[in-house]
């Protein structure tokens, strides 16, 4: 059962096409997995349509209509740019996992898996824009050292379970943390695949993990 959803404000910005590429990908993937947000975003689209198409626009004269109609009737049908992987699957070191439709459409953007450190793996997702978007794989018993971030960290659980100081999160949960919140995500029995977006490097805050701060750019590429 998904309990952590994007806010209605974020869904509204998403449906308006106002979010960055990275955040759009995160929200679209959550919506793939979340029937409740599918309903809400359909309602928002209807509302946006009513709002934007409400304006009393001047009717076009016949000449204006005919010119554009002629161009449309003589146009070729185009195919949308979709790279659909029929298997909807990607592999990591012998593991295979299914991807929600939006990620599957963008599977060709997923780079090679890299071992970060400890029980953490990362594959970059190249979608343009200033943020860093990665698939992060945490093996069972993995810990990301306690950290804060200068910007916003958004995380979506694609499969599995992880916990932090605030809660535990499962498939489909969408978590936004800003600079004021310290946390250290960890897995216990189960592993966890997440999609994560960062707009600034992590800053590690406790104990031995401060050793990582000179290298925190390694977590941000």
């Amino acid at each position: 059962m998904i309990k952590a959803h994007p806010s209605e404000a974020l869904l509204y910005q998403y449906s308006s096409g106002e979010l960055s590429c990275a955040m759009s990908l995160m929200v679209a993937t959550h919506i793939d997995m979340c029937p409740s947000c599918q309903r809400v975003s359909a309602e928002i689209e209807q509302h946006l349509c009513e709002k934007h198409f409400d304006e009393i626009a001047a009717k076009w004269d016949q000449k204006q209509c005919d010119d554009m109609l002629a161009a449309i009737f003589s146009s070729e049908s185009s195919h949308p740019l979709i790279h659909n992987d029929p298997n909807n699957m990607i592999c990591l070191q012998g593991r295979r996992f299914n991807l929600p439709p939006t990620l599957a459409n963008n599977a060709y953007r997923i780079g090679d898996w890299n071992h970060m450190l400890g029980k953490l793996w990362r594959a970059p997702v190249s979608i343009g824009g200033v943020e860093n978007t990665n698939l992060i794989y945490m093996e069972p018993g993995a810990t990301v050292p306690e950290h804060t971030h200068k910007g916003v960290e958004a995380t979506l659980v694609v499969n599995g379970t992880f916990s932090d100081e605030y809660d535990s999160y499962e498939d489909g949960d969408f978590i936004m943390l800003d600079a004021s919140r310290k946390h250290s995500p960890r897995t216990v029995q189960e592993d966890c695949l997440t999609l994560a977006t960062l707009d600034a490097p992590l800053h590690f805050t406790s104990g031995i993990s401060r050793l990582l701060n000179p290298f925190s750019s390694l977590f941000f590429k």
């Binding site: 096409g17 590429c21 759009s24 990908l25 679209a28 949308p80 740019l81 979709i82 790279h83 939006t102 459409n105 963008n106 953007r109 190249s126 979608i127 343009g128 824009g129």
Partner: peptide, 8 residues
């Protein structure tokens, strides 16, 4: 490499 609307 930027994502397009069709992909979202």
């Amino acid at each position: 490499d930027e994502i397009s609307a069709d992909e979202l």
